[in-house]
Design a protein around this nucleic acid. Structure first.
Length: 350
DNA sequence: CACACGTGGAA
DNA sequence: TTTCCAAGTGT
């Protein structure tokens, strides 16, 4: 076993990437990096990390910011609950922990958005505490190397892999150990086309020896997607436009959008226009100017088909009072999902 | 505890 | 084009 680890450490020393969060020992920044990296490729996270810690260099500064500012920095990265929880936890640390990031695993895991993986990652990387951080890379490496075919998305599998990780966890250099295993999975023992030919541990690897890397890791669940149909009203009135905040427990919570009519089925142009009567007061004159093409926006569990309806209103009093009236140049201060951002880009409002 | 939660890159 | 999936967590 120590042979396996020694090879991994050796490999890591030579092949580790020069990543921005590896230049700091600030637990706050380690925390931010780990939240950003959840379900996110390193390459996509780097720019976001740099902008985030530049905008919010300390816990206190983030705690004092508006949630929209935090979401705005997060815009485009997805899984926005991460940003909301990060902000919420920053306020919690600032208000209740004297602004000091907790140094104990059991306190770290209390933070919103921090689960078993992230708590172990922070504890090991920032404080060198020997907690195994078992992420998707490590599931893959272990399943192949040891030939473990228990589904990694089962409760049994999680326990089994955690046990293996705990057993090989050294007392010292926990941060290096965890990062070495993850980096090895990310760069060498990749999901597709793993580089077994020049792998330092392939001679002892179960899957490599059996030429069965494609069978590992085993997953049991497959998610299904549902279709949703969004009709956004882009209402312009001189230099002003109208937006609303998504407040329900749904995708893109607490982010902004143009007034939305959601349908359970695809609508024809005629139906879209007749539906305007539902959304706007029936005695109001609503002029439909143009309509965008159908946009297909794919999420992890949903496919959204969206159209943007350009509307001109004669009387501003027709509009729902809950709509937020903003100067069109200020739209860029609001956190919006990619679907909206892409539409705004097409408008050329700048 | 099964499922929801975003986005984009690679093959 | 389709499919997979990435430093997981909350409910």
């Amino acid at each position: 076993m120590s042979d396996f680890l020694n090879q991994i450490y050796l490999w890591y020393n030579i092949n580790k990437r020069d990543l921005p969060w590896r230049k700091t020992t600030d637990p706050y920044k380690i925390w931010v990096s780990e939240i950003i990296l959840q379900q996110t490729r390193i390459i996509n996270g780097i720019g976001y990390y740099k902008r985030f810690v530049e905008t919010f260099p300390t816990i206190k500064i983030m705690a004092q910011a508006e949630e929209n500012q935090v979401l705005k920095i997060w815009q485009g990265l997805g899984y926005y609950s991460r940003a909301r929880n990060l902000h919420s936890s920053a306020k919690y640390i600032n208000d209740n922990l004297n602004g000091k990031f907790p140094e104990d695993y059991n306190d770290i895991i209390q933070l919103k958005g921090v689960g078993p993986y992230t708590a172990a990652a922070i504890a090991s990387i920032a404080f060198d505490l020997p907690y195994p951080a078992v992420d998707a890379n490590i599931y893959r490496v272990f399943s192949r190397y040891f030939g473990i075919s228990t589904p990694i998305d089962s409760e049994k599998g999680k326990k089994e892999f955690y046990k293996v990780a705990k057993n090989i966890m050294p007392e010292k250099n926990a941060g290096m150990h965890n990062q070495a295993l993850m980096e090895f999975g990310a760069l060498q023992c990749t999901p597709k086309l793993p580089r077994c030919s020049n792998c330092p541990v392939s001679n002892l690897c179960f899957a490599a020896k059996n030429k069965s890397t494609g069978l590992y890791p085993v997953k049991s669940k497959k998610s299904k997607q549902t279709n949703r149909f969004f009709y956004y009203y882009f209402i312009k009135n001189d230099d002003f436009i109208y937006i609303e905040k998504r407040i329900k427990n749904d995708i893109w919570k607490n982010m902004y959008q143009f007034p939305l009519f959601e349908s359970d089925k695809k609508l024809s142009i005629k139906e879209i226009i007749s539906n305007l009567k539902i959304t706007f007061n029936s005695d109001c004159k609503v002029n439909v100017k143009t309509m965008s093409t159908l946009k297909k926006h794919v999420l992890s569990h949903q496919i959204i088909f969206a159209r943007f309806v350009h509307i001109k209103i004669e009387d501003v009093n027709c509009l729902d009072k809950n709509f937020i009236r903003v100067n069109k140049k200020d739209i860029f201060t609001f956190a919006v999902p990619r679907l909206i951002e892409q539409f705004i880009e097409e408008l050329n409002l700048r």
